[in-house]
Design a protein around this nucleic acid. Structure first.
Lengths: 258, 258
DNA sequence: AATTATGTTCCGATAAAAGGAACTTGTTCG
DNA sequence: CGAACAAGTTCCTTTTATCGGAACATAATT
């Protein structure tokens, strides 16, 4: 975490405030990042001048609203999100469980958007966060259809639960099965009690077909079985196809400027 | 826009990419901000190393998903948002029109959250954006109940529409009326055809009562009249009171760490 | 009122950013 | 097919902003 440029240190301050989830003072931030108070203070001032950090009534620093505008702007700039949102919302309302959108960005799988279910016990992934590859339904999809888009982690695959696939061989055979069926299932492999169904969003015809993301349905494992895995899988696949269709028609509209 | 520190320039790059709404290259960004290519390139690299900017398949730069996580984190850190979201969603579903949350931040009125209605014609404010004070329902609320929290703009108040109140005197009398009734109405004063009803979210008892934000209901003007302004106003006030109540009980729980 | 913790300002040494220019890569047009 | 152009990247010297210890100011605590 050492020896970074000024800009990167400033960004690190933002991430630290984000991770801390509570407003903090100059001293605490400086200690956490291994920087002297004065440097920390200068970075915070610069960030504050642009509204990326704010101060509460106690004078403690926290992330600012300017970040909200930037972040939501970045989301809306994602064609997959724009195309997917109404579909996610419609599905979440019909099924009553959480639907979300995941895509590979910079070698990692990121939650791009979500529409939460209505149950007392429901999945609530954090938009913007990363999820593991080898222990999720979407991860298997990427191994099956877009393995070049996600970074392969080192051989020691972390066993989140007893059901996590930690052997590269079993992962490969799982990927083959996924390729055959066209959808993926994760039952208690990442988080005990959580099951996820996922289907790929694919654009382009024939040779240059490309996976641009995945639709996932997350619910408590018993709930998923109660509703019927196969029926839900068909539903998730249909949702993914709808989003892909919206991307095809929408694509020409996104014109280049200047 | 000149003579800023490195951190501020980097942030300016982010805002520029946000405002451009389309991916851009090094040259275009540098020209827009008056910086040489090499400097622009260095800033973009630093931002990219932390995921705040990304590159599309053409190599053009755009804002990155790391910003999404930071931005949504900042939102969730706002107690008003956490308390308000379920209320907004419930109201939006019942009425079928857009409810949103506005609060003063750094002297400006900012949209903190929204729940959109379901109609073909519906208001869709951008979360994170600022709204004018003198031409909105929430602005009048702040003039009435929390004038110290928003910066007074210069005397020449911009006339967005023929109905905009541009005289400080008429604004003051409007604020008095708002204080008496406890809610505010904006009919076509900012955007023609758009009407907004707003009520203050107030916490604390007796002397140290404080306005911490406002709930607003936005709809096409004819629609608002069709549904009945008075009934809707009561509804908006009730929603604001619900959020305030949730803030009171929720407040002690938000513990300080360390 | 004294003490301690925390935020802010100051300033010389120094490393890092600035920016012009050369180099590389990819695209367009004859 | 190759030349001309445009855009991105790297190089290198000058200059300036960052660094960080320490003094100062301010607010909370006992």
């Amino acid at each position: 975490m050492e020896s970074a440029g000024t800009v990167e240190k400033a960004v690190d301050v933002l991430f630290h405030l984000h991770a801390a989830r509570a407003p903090q003072g100059v001293t605490a931030i400086g200690q956490a990042l291994g920087m002297p108070k004065s440097s920390t203070h200068r970075l915070l001032s610069a960030l504050g001048r642009r509204g990326l950090v704010e101060r509460d009534e106690r004078g403690q620093y926290r992330t600012g609203i300017a970040l909200v505008a930037l972040g939501l702007g970045a989301l809306e700039g994602e064609p997959v999100v724009a195309a997917g949102r109404p579909v996610l919302e419609a599905q979440a309302r019909e099924v009553g469980e959480t639907f979300f959108l995941v895509a590979a960005r910079a070698g990692k799988l990121r939650v791009l958007d979500k529409a939460e279910g209505s149950g007392f016990l429901r999945a609530a992934p954090q938009v913007g966060s990363a999820v593991p590859v080898h222990a999720t339904a979407v991860g298997k999809l990427y191994l099956a259809f877009g393995s070049d888009q996600v970074a392969q982690s080192g051989t020691p695959l972390k066993a989140f639960t007893p059901r996590t696939l930690t052997e590269p061989r079993s992962l490969q055979s799982a990927a083959r099965a996924v390729r055959r069926r066209g959808w993926a299932l994760n039952r208690d492999e990442w988080i005990p009690g959580l099951s996820v169904l996922a289907a790929p969003i694919r654009t382009g015809r024939g040779g240059d077909e490309r996976m641009v993301g995945a639709v996932a349905l997350a619910a408590a494992t018993p709930r998923l079985e109660e509703l019927g895995t196969d029926a839900l899988a068909r539903r998730v696949r249909r949702a993914a196809e709808q989003i892909a269709a919206r991307l095809e028609v929408g694509a020409p509209g996104r014109g280049r400027s200047r």
